[in-house]
Amino acid sequence: MNLTLYVWRQKGPHAPGKLARYEARGISPEMSFLEMLDVVNESLIREGEEPISFDHDCREGICGTCSQVINGVPHGPQERTTVCQLHMRSFRDGDTIYIEPWRARAFPVIRDLIVDRSAFERIIQAGGYISVHTGGVPDGNALLIPKENADTAMDAAECIGCGACVAACPNGSAMLFTAAKVSHLAALPQGRVEAKRRVCLMTEEMLRQGFGSCSNHYECQAACPKGIRVSFIAKLNREFIKALPRGTNTAPPSPSHGTEAKE
């Protein structure tokens, strides 16, 4: 089949960008969306043009690298599917497809469809972990965890950190991402110890990184390729409220030689 593509082309973070038109010819329905782009790129290279840069890696829907807004929907029209798992049979011959990068202030475009998602790193670094050292831990069965909790934790932990929630959110909010991590750890007894501190630190970092707040549109859940639910945002809110009366120590940690926080 033949398609008309409008692809966002942008040389660098500060360069202006625009949609460029390309014709994709001889596309087979078995191709994945990224393989379709591979075909377009191969012909661009042969014609001496710069290929379209896009992020991708595992191409099996788990690494969370691919990040394209297709016809206004992060990861495209198929529910619970990453771009790399989207196949061309979801489109029809003659279709026009708009392909754009994630858009949010916290995710600046690096080039074409590639954005910088390191703001997510800093949210996790702020407290998205259990502060345990390697070694010296009790037996795995020393701590019994109700199946229900383990399942809830797993539901939340399925997040692949792709950023579709931010891309879909009219506010560019990272609440679903942050909530998934907060909920995953808060559902487990070993994560409860630091729960109050964690929720404060992580939400604070979210603000610092320039993400918007949650207006409960629930666009994120609809765009999430892993079906992370907005009830985890409610859970984050609960955890936050629980942390209120105690007053949590969220003083900035000592300066590190780690990645610099962005203003």
């Binding site: 409008y6 949609l19 807004v69 016809n71 206004g72 929907v73 708009y98 754009e100 858009r103 949010a104 202030r105 916290a106 879909a168 959110c169 009219p170 506010n171 560019g172 909010s173 320039g210 993400f211 918007g212 707040s213 207006s215 549109h217 629930y218 666009e219 859940q221 609809a222 765009a223």
Partner: peptide, 17 residues
């Protein structure tokens, strides 16, 4: 929020909002 989301998509498809 307006600052956090500069610019929009060429085509915007609301899923749930």
């Amino acid at each position: 929020n307006r600052k956090a989301k500069p610019g929009s998509y060429a085509i915007r498809n609301s899923l749930r909002a």
